[in-house]
Design a protein around this nucleic acid. Structure first.
Length: 484
RNA sequence: GGCGAAGUGGCCGAGUGGCUAGGCAGAGGUCUGCAAAACCUUCUACAGCGGUUCGAAUCCGCUCUUCGCCUCCA
């Protein structure tokens, strides 16, 4: 089965055929850096991380662009209100640049811990003002934009396709919820700002042909996507809430400027909810990742996210996280057992598992199904290892390969450091291993003497220290507990 | 009001016509000095009402409910 992607524009799954063979250009709307990342960011960027990893696995050369919005994103409706970064700078009594850089670092810290690969290019809006001005000039030239009092607006009525992504084609419907005063200088209420003149005292501002000001929020993505990926890009991703107006406006200004299709496949991921309600900063129910990481390992969060489809909403709760954690530990147990196993005689045909996994991923990145395939394989592995026969060397190797490639590399839900092939045992770890060995030898002697009080004491004290001891058919195993 | 998504067993969460999703939790069993883990067996489903069909969770209609977007938001 070839890769199929659900295209928000056509509202159906389509076979993925990139503009240029074996090359995939991907642009995903990045964060506005005025606060720490929350669980919603995690869902979005983990989802696209897996998509990109799968594309690369399929042999595509992927250029993945994810912007950093550090100017132009206003607190109120698209054309009024204060800049988010500037507002936060005022609240924290510092410079907007410091706010942007501080929260950008914070964002990458969190994504690193979640195992999200960095994009190839992470352009900032402030770093691409000339490109945005050039785009606006072109739109004015072609009659798609007009200037009033140093502000430039896109003329929605000049672009008949406006509304094709969000389904909002009825002009009346578009504005029914927009609270713009009737005295607005815009020609039509639905017109959106491309360039805004800065008020006195505004810190982030640049010179332009129209005024000293700053670009509108929608302009940056079009300008940067087209600069690095060309006028038509293969995949554009983002959160569903950005479909309108943000992506609708991107299409309008890009296609009006180039007369070419802007995006071949639109991908939108769904929201994280808390108790069934959307998570949002303004609702004061957002789950900050740094806080969450203090009690839940990042890899569990990643697993939790991938257990649902990216187009489904995901409801966050303590019990749901706990269930994920237990489930993931089960998978990791098998992974560890697989690495520690010695060759035996039983054969396990892994081809079917590989095919099922690939089919699931090719079906619009269906990670829940892909994970269930790993669980099924884990069950087969456990059964074989438990039987006493063990797995043949060839089977063992193909199982390890699947877990390493799919569990570690693509889904990122199994710790690659556990493969043992890295051989990066630190001195401290070796010492610990030796000490634990001594204690386990003592415990073994105690058990042989049927001194179970002593053997249990050793096990309990080790458990208190974060070392879990298990007696298996093949002897005693130990591991460092999770979350230490 | 307009646009869109969705209602699955105790919980999470897949599944677009017939064949066990998966995970967590529960029950029984195997193994074990006891734990833990693992394995085996097993119990709870498709919001409601109609319709299409040999057959529907899956298609159609209606009703009810929830959520998102239409203001900033991954």
């Amino acid at each position: 089965m070839a890769l199929h992607i659900y295209n928000s524009l056509s509202r159906q799954k389509e076979e993925f055929i990139p503009l240029h063979e074996k090359i995939a250009s991907v642009y995903v709307c990045g964060p506005t850096v005025y606060g720490h990342a929350h669980l919603g960011h995690a869902k979005s960027y983990v989802s696209f991380d897996v998509a990109v990893k799968w594309l690369r696995h399929l042999g595509y050369s992927v250029t993945y662009i994810q912007n950093i919005t550090d100017v132009g994103h206003l607190t109120d409706d698209a054309d009024e209100g204060e800049d988010k970064i500037a507002r936060q700078a005022r609240l924290e009594k510092t410079d907007p640049m410091e706010i942007a850089q501080y929260y950008t670092r914070s964002y990458y810290d969190d994504m690193d811990r979640l195992g999200v690969d960095r994009p190839n290019i992470a352009p900032t809006a402030t770093g691409h003002i000339p490109e945005q001005i050039a785009l606006i000039e072109k739109l004015i030239e072609k009659g798609h934009a007009y200037e009033v009092n140093g502000n430039v607006y896109f003329s929605v009525s000049s672009f008949p396709d406006y509304g094709k992504l969000s389904g909002r084609t009825d002009q009346e419907a578009q504005h029914s919820g927009v609270r713009v005063e009737s005295r607005s200088e815009k020609h039509h209420p639905a017109d959106f700002a491309l360039w805004k003149k800065a008020d006195a005292g505004h810190i982030m501002k640049w010179n332009s042909p129209w005024s000293t000001g700053f670009p509108g929020w929608h302009t940056e993505c079009s300008a940067m996507a087209m600069k690095y990926l060309g006028e038509t890009i293969d995949i554009h991703g983002g959160g569903m809430e950005n479909k309108f107006p943000h992506h609708e406006c991107e299409i309008a200004q890009s296609e009006a400027a180039t007369d070419k299709p802007y995006v071949r496949y639109w991908m939108h991921n769904n929201m994280v909810t808390v108790n069934g309600t959307k998570m949002g900063k303004s609702l004061k129910n957002s789950v900050n990742l740094k806080d969450l990481f203090t009690t839940v390992p990042p890899i569990v969060i990643r697993f939790f996210i991938l257990q649902s489809h990216y187009r489904s909403s995901l409801d966050f709760s303590e019990t749901a996280i706990r269930a994920s954690r237990t489930g993931l530990e089960k998978l990791q147990e098998t992974w560890h057992a697989l690495l520690a196993a010695t060759p035996g005689s039983e054969k396990l045909d892994t081809a079917a598992f590989e095919k099922r996994f690939a089919d699931a991923m090719n079906d619009d990145f269906n990670t829940p199904i892909a994970i269930s395939v790993l669980f099924d394989l884990a069950k087969a592995v456990n059964t074989a290892l438990n039987s006493g026969q063990g797995l043949s060397e060839a089977s063992l190797n193909s199982c390890r390969k699947i877990f390493a490639a799919y569990g570690c590399d693509i889904l990122g839900i199994l710790d690659a450091a556990d493969t043992g092939k890295s051989g990066d045992k630190t001195a401290g770890k070796e010492v610990l291993g030796n000490v634990v060995s001594i204690l386990l030898d003592l415990r073994k002697q105690a058990r042989e003497n049927r001194d179970f009080a002593l053997s249990d004491l050793i096990r309990d004290r080790l458990a208190d220290s974060g070392v879990t001891v298990k007696d298996t058919r093949d002897g005693t195993e130990w591991s460092i507990s999770q979350n230490t």
